[in-house]
Amino acid sequence: MLVIDMQNDFCSPAGAMAALGADVQVNTAVAGRLPSFLDRARHAGCLVVWVRQAAHEQLVSPARRARAEAMGRSPLSVCAAGSWGAELAEGLRPEPGDCHLEKTRYSAFVGTPLHNLLRAHGRDHVVVVGTAANVCVDSTIRDAYMADLATTMPTDLVGWTRADLAEAAIRNLGFYFCETTTSAELLSDWSVVDRAA
């Protein structure tokens, strides 16, 4: 279970994205639904991996700086390393046994030990939740597919700040790169497996 970027700057009305004029309501709602879902996922045997974005001055390339400036912001304005904005959103509490990764690019696979972590735990299927459907979730799912990992995206647990871009991304991901489902359908599947065991 990869939980992508569920951080204050993306989910809180007091965070950086909201301050930049983005509508974070969908992300806030996803953050509210995640705790009970993750409890059930752990019970079903899922390894929960919290993946957080962190912006470091030393790791900002000219290309990244140019893209941020084109969007009207500094490359350090969202999820600056060590800031309140980079912390998990209110109500999200990791449990003992969960894993934690910091990423500095959109994909959770770029520049992180995620491949090694999954191998160490014998996992070849990832469920991706979090935000944003058209950016970090999209990039992570594409890389999971390219790494031959089975991938599932419960669409009601994926957020965004741009519905027009996110909805197109979800359709595209579901056609080419992953299975799309809902959290209720996943929980039902897990219950069937649990009863069979």
Rank of each mutant, 00 (worst) to 15 (best):
F37E: 11
L38G: 08
L38K: 06
D39G: 14
D39N: 10
R40E: 15
A41Q: 13
R42H: 11
H43M: 14
G45L: 04
C46V: 00
C46K: 13
L47V: 09
V48E: 06
V49C: 10
V49G: 08
W50M: 05
A54M: 05
A54N: 11
H56C: 01
H56P: 00
E57P: 03
S61R: 09
S61K: 09
S61Y: 09
R64L: 11
R64K: 13
R65H: 03
R67G: 00
R67F: 06
A68K: 06
G72L: 12
G72C: 08
S74L: 04
S74K: 07
P75R: 11
S77I: 00
V78R: 02
C79G: 04
C79S: 13
S83T: 06
W84E: 09
G85I: 01
E87S: 12
E87F: 02
L88A: 04
L88Q: 01
A89Q: 12
A89M: 12
E90K: 07
L92Y: 02
L92R: 06
R93C: 08
R93T: 13
E95I: 00
P96T: 04
G97V: 05
D98V: 09
D98S: 05
H100F: 15
L101A: 08
K103P: 05
T104S: 15
R105E: 14
F109R: 07
G111H: 08
G111Y: 10
T112Q: 10
T112H: 12
P113M: 01
P113E: 05
P113I: 00
H115E: 14
H115Q: 13
L117G: 05
L118E: 15
L118W: 12
R119P: 00
A120F: 03
H121M: 07
H121T: 02
G122L: 10
R123K: 15
R123A: 14
H125E: 10
V129T: 14
V129K: 06
V129G: 03
A133L: 09
V137R: 02
V137I: 06
D138C: 04
S139A: 15
S139K: 09
I141P: 03
I141N: 05
I141S: 04
Y145H: 15
L149K: 05
A150W: 00
T151L: 02
P154Y: 05
